[in-house]
Simulated scan of single mutants.
Amino acid sequence: MSAEEITRRIRTALPDAEVTLVALADDDDHWEATVTSAAFAGLPRVRQHRLVYEAIGADMGGTLHALRLITRPREG
């Protein structure tokens, strides 16, 4: 899955998200994503990650084999 598609899906689910992606391999299958969003405020990290995985949908674990996540609530 391309960086553009991953970013699009996350921003569709979390419109205020800042998304930074780093390829962990040269195959569009392994990524590290740093996602910052106000939607994460007050949520435990597991729930923050679940919101991102839900944004990726059924392709998580298939088309997108691995996604290392760093989530941060937007301060403001």
Rank of each mutant, 00 (worst) to 15 (best):
T63Y: 01
A55C: 05
A39R: 11
A41V: 03
L14F: 09
L64S: 08
L64E: 06
M60C: 14
G62N: 12
M1L: 13
H30M: 02
T63R: 10
S2N: 14
G76C: 05
L21P: 02
R72P: 00
T20Q: 07
R47P: 05
T12I: 05
Y53S: 07
R68T: 14
A33M: 01
I56N: 03
E32F: 11
L43K: 15
T36C: 02
R47G: 06
A66S: 15
G57Q: 10
A23T: 13
A41N: 08
V46R: 14
A41C: 07
H30G: 02
R11I: 00
T12W: 13
T36W: 04
G57F: 11
R50E: 10
R9L: 08
L24A: 03
Q48W: 01
G62I: 07
R50W: 04
S2H: 09
L43F: 05
V46D: 10
A66W: 04
A66N: 11
A3G: 15
T36G: 00
S2L: 08
V46T: 14
H30T: 02
V22C: 04
A58W: 05
R72E: 12
G62H: 13
D28K: 04
T36P: 01
V19C: 00
A66T: 13
G76M: 06
G61Y: 06
H30W: 02
R72K: 15
A55M: 06
A39Y: 02
P15W: 13
A55Y: 10
T12N: 15
M1T: 09
W31D: 00
A58P: 14
T20R: 12
A55R: 10
V52M: 07
A39E: 14
A55K: 07
T36E: 10
E32L: 13
A55Q: 07
V22N: 03
A55P: 03
D28L: 07
M60Q: 11
W31G: 01
G76K: 10
A3I: 03
D26W: 02
E54H: 14
I56R: 03
D26K: 11
S2M: 06
E5L: 10
R50G: 06
R74K: 15
A55G: 05
S37Q: 07
R72A: 11
D16R: 07
A55E: 08
L69C: 09
A39M: 06
A17E: 04
P15R: 10
L43D: 09
T7L: 00
A25V: 04
A58T: 15
M1S: 14
A55N: 07
A33R: 00
D27W: 02
I56E: 03
F40R: 03
V19Y: 00
E5H: 07
L69T: 06
R47H: 14
V19H: 01
A17W: 04
T20D: 04
P44M: 13
A17H: 06
G42P: 11
L24R: 04
L43H: 09
A33L: 00
W31E: 01
